[in-house]
């Protein structure tokens, strides 16, 4: 995850606390989604950013996961996400996300 984004996540964490913060990802690949999810839960696996060695344990989802889709207005989802949903390997992304969440 981009170092600047890690910094922002850490700032939000300090501002809102763990229980009032959900991280929503839009990564285009399962591996990239998994890495980002790992960064905001277990810590930055690349040991490069502000979240290196910091386990925030935040709730994290990808926008294409069914739990999130169910929460979004159908028309908005169609306009903003449906095209990408067709393009992405959604199953792979869900698998990666579940794998990270299971480690929590």
């Amino acid at each position: 995850m981009d170092l600047e984004n890690q910094k922002r996540v850490l700032e939000y964490y300090e501002q809102y606390g763990k229980d009032d913060l959900v991280i929503l990802l839009g990564a285009a690949e399962g591996e990239a989604a998994g890495l980002a999810a790992e960064t905001v839960t277990l810590g930055d696996p690349t040991y490069a950013g502000p979240l290196a060695g910091v386990s925030l344990g935040l709730e994290v989802y990808h926008i294409c996961e069914p739990e999130v889709k169910a929460e979004v207005d159908e028309a908005v989802y169609d306009e903003q996400i449906s095209m990408m949903e067709m393009v992405l390997d959604v199953d792979d992304i869900i698998n990666e996300m579940n794998m990270i969440r299971e480690q929590l």
């Binding site: 285009a28 690949e29 591996e31 990239a32 449906s82 095209m83 990408m84 067709m86 393009v87």
Partner: peptide
């Protein structure tokens, strides 16, 4: 590096838009 096949992702997006617009069949993606 986990960034995927960038041109292919672009083509899939264009094709998916084509499917949404009814210019391409889903199976032709």
């Amino acid at each position: 590096a986990g960034a995927g096949n960038v041109p292919e992702a672009n083509y899939k997006m264009i094709a998916a838009l084509g499917v949404k617009r009814g210019e391409i069949e889903r199976k032709q993606l």
